[in-house]
Design a protein around this nucleic acid. Structure first.
Lengths: 121, 121
DNA sequence: TCATTTTTTAGAACCATTCTAAATTTATTT
DNA sequence: AAATAAATTTAGAATGGTTCTAAAAAATGA
């Protein structure tokens, strides 16, 4: 754990939100760090690969990073773009279908409108 | 329907596979079309928006285009990168959860190893 | 036919992310 | 502690997929 990685970890771990690199980077700047963009990416990759945080990949959007390691799905609010945690049944699978294809992981993404945005509209 | 759009449509509609822009573009060239990359993108967007074909977006991968308009999910083979059609329960939703968030669509992606790749390994 | 709108072309621009090479830091061995 | 090796950070260029812009061409309408 280098200083840079620790700082990135602390930022992600300080909020239940799902942060984008952009948001993490601006938090980094607030801490007067001279860290550079590539290091944020490197550190995030390290933290994900070593199980400290979780990467949420959504087509068409930049990656988001989540301190919540428990299995869960997400609802993407089409109004504000926020991700909302949603309980999930199973993410890890282990079965073969009738054609012999093997399944080991399931990723579910919901689209909708979050409660807050509904009130605004 | 312009000539360009018709050609793109024919290419996508000629196979059950899930084509990438790259693949579509090389088919275009085989037809001696002088069509340019941007037009392929424009045409694909048009065809998707008007319900002729379906766009499959997968994080980290380029978009794929599918003539199959019936609701279905996909299995991404982590070995060969191919997408395999998988029957789906429901894609379109219409409900609110306990927190008042509204859900209108569900997207499921499976990861695994297809039958053919298992035999090779 | 003239004017208006739409589409295509060509290539630049964009954005998120990764890569490269050099500099720095950290860890290991002597 | 010094020397060497390994890992990480930095800086900025490069990448890949996709969209944008402006001009040219084609289609549509009056």
């Amino acid at each position: 754990m280098t200083k840079q990685r620790q700082l990135i970890y602390n930022i992600v771990n300080s909020t239940p939100d799902h942060l984008k690199v952009e948001e993490i980077f601006s938090e980094v700047k607030k801490n007067n760090s001279t860290m550079v963009f590539a290091t944020v990416y490197n550190s995030l990759n390290y933290l994900v690969e070593n199980g400290y945080i979780r990467r949420i990949r959504i087509p068409g959007l930049p990656d988001h990073f989540d301190r919540n390691l428990q299995p869960h799905d997400h609802l993407l609010c089409e109004e504000c773009g926020n991700l909302i945690d949603v309980p999930s049944q199973e993410e890890k699978l282990n079965f073969f279908d009738a054609n012999g294809n093997y399944y080991h992981k399931k990723q579910v993404l919901y689209y909708g409108i979050c409660y807050l945005c509904q009130k605004k509209l």
